[in-house]
Design a binder for these strands. Sequence first.
DNA 1: CTAAGCCTTACAGCAAGAGGAAGGTCAAGA
DNA 2: TCTTGACCTTCCTCTTGCTGTAAGGCTTAG
Lengths: 143, 143
Amino acid sequence: MNISEAAKLSGLSAKTIRYYESIELLSQPRRAGNGYRSYHHGDIKTLCFLRQARQFGFNIAQCRLLLGLYKNPQRRSGEVHQLVSDKLEEVDAHIRELGETRDLLASLVGACSNNDEPDCAIIDSLADPREQVESQCLTENDR
Amino acid sequence: MNISEAAKLSGLSAKTIRYYESIELLSQPRRAGNGYRSYHHGDIKTLCFLRQARQFGFNIAQCRLLLGLYKNPQRRSGEVHQLVSDKLEEVDAHIRELGETRDLLASLVGACSNNDEPDCAIIDSLADPREQVESQCLTENDR
DNA sequence: CTAAGCCTTACAGCAAGAGGAAGGTCAAGA
DNA sequence: TCTTGACCTTCCTCTTGCTGTAAGGCTTAG
């Protein structure tokens, strides 16, 4: 099948498939007589694997590792497990961080008088140099 | 004061300050006789404003809007409120999405036998083309 | 014969800076 | 006075993960 069919089945775009090939994340596919790329069932599974790994937040380097394990019949499942649980922790940390950001945003939203007057607690708070000092001291002390 | 002092006080890097100037997010600062950029108290507040806005997840275009409101004594606080509550919603949506990703990752981690054998439920699941069909149908139906 | 709809390669550009080269300036110490 | 180190300047390239576009070739239907 041609690249657009492979794209449809895998959920990646044709552009993305060619890009993965260009950075050697994917190996060169077979070519039909006219030079068109030709994909088969196993290729589609690989493409799906990459799409899902990317959706889970693995970057290209990590996808390379995962793909190596996928292709390796002698892999140890413990290695896969490690990569995935590391990612889980990373996502958890990101969620916590975003949660703090959300809470701060919510407190800004609550403090603003939200009318036609120029006075605005949000503006005041954003421009306040002190908003940074504490957290900077904290991170410095952390080290 | 010179740029590195302004950087320290604002929490931005000197690189970033120059970059903001190059994209005209910041106006040209005064220059000392030797050509060095020279910053004063009001500049520091502006820099802090930008640092905080970026930390809250506003992109450069949004920072431009916010900065316009900051500099405008005739602003209506309602406009600021709108921008910030939109961002709050955006962050909320992002958190929900990441939450789903985390749950899926956690289920993968739980399903893996995590040992020296090659059999791995994670690998199988990632390569499974069906994992995509439902969500794709959903998004298509949504339109 | 032509038009649409595929396919190919190759180059440019996006955000939001970080890193580094090459050179000018300034203040302190030998 | 000379040097050394820490600043500062501009300019250029690199990053990540693609997406857009140009210019051209193949295929199939009317």
